[in-house]
Nucleic acid binder design. Sequence first.
DNA 1: ATTTTGTCCTGCGAGC
DNA 2: TGCTCGCAGGACAAAA
Length: 312
Amino acid sequence: MPELPEVESVRRGIQAWAQGARVDRVRILDPRILGTTSNRLIAPEAPARLTAELTGRELASVERRGKFMWLPLRHCSDDTASGSAGGDAVAEPSPARALSVHLGMSGQFRVHESTDPMHRHTRAILGLERAGRERLELRFVDQRIFGHLGVDDLVDSHGASVPRSVSHIALDPLDPLYDPERTARRIQAKRTGMKSALLDQTVISGIGNIYADEALFAARVHPLAPTQTTRISRIRTVLAKAEAVMRDSLAQGGTSFDALYVHVNGESGYFERSLQVYGRGGLPCNRCETPIVRERFMNRSSHFCPVCQRKP
DNA sequence: ATTTTGTCCTGCGAGC
DNA sequence: TGCTCGCAGGACAAAA
């Protein structure tokens, strides 16, 4: 399940290939990836519209906030020259639109040559033309179609330019502008459990079910500990552990449980072997040997040590 | 207003 | 053997 470390791994993975490339071909194989998880009504003309928006554009960079990625678009220099017929020579305008990407549960970006065999769950293909280098394809593969592709206006949010669809997402712990103290106070102001707060992408972004469980274990805090009565120092610790565990994971290329998360070249990350509680229900706690408990609440599995993480 | 619940989707494995 | 059922969970609309 791609969370911050996995998405950042993918961002770094495609950056070298995508940055500065020109989109010369777009194929939408399954239009459902153009919708959101809650809006599956795809206008019939949506694929053609996205294709028109992207074709001929240059991908300026690859950005990320939390689990969201986007690639700001700009007109290629030759396009600009022919487009502004006889107009004043203006400086390259800052990108106003971006290709926005969410990997959902099972989304992957894979770098391929166009002759490579097609993966069964390929949902979209961007053909990339790169000055002086061979053509390649960026393929969006997504088994469960929780992922999303779209083109969106760039707007200002938390001191950065992000797609409108990302503007409500909070800064993540790897963002230079991230403020852990402010985040801790916001969490304490909520009336909910600690795990719910960590998963609220408008409070802190990038944390999903795996790293929420791992951070709470590392901080010795129960997932259902009420935010309001948890001491601010404990909340600070949880945030520090969340950041630490995600940085560790990133250094190991992220967590790969199965073939659902892989790098752009198809290789897996190695953080799974470092997980302390997630996926370890019934196995002994690495600190106290007590069997790790797996319980379902919030419609999700939560994994924790009943001894190390005292009940609220 | 804020918090919780339900929904989307596919493949796989357990159980009968 | 073949079927059904449950499970995996990110984000968001809807309900509470």
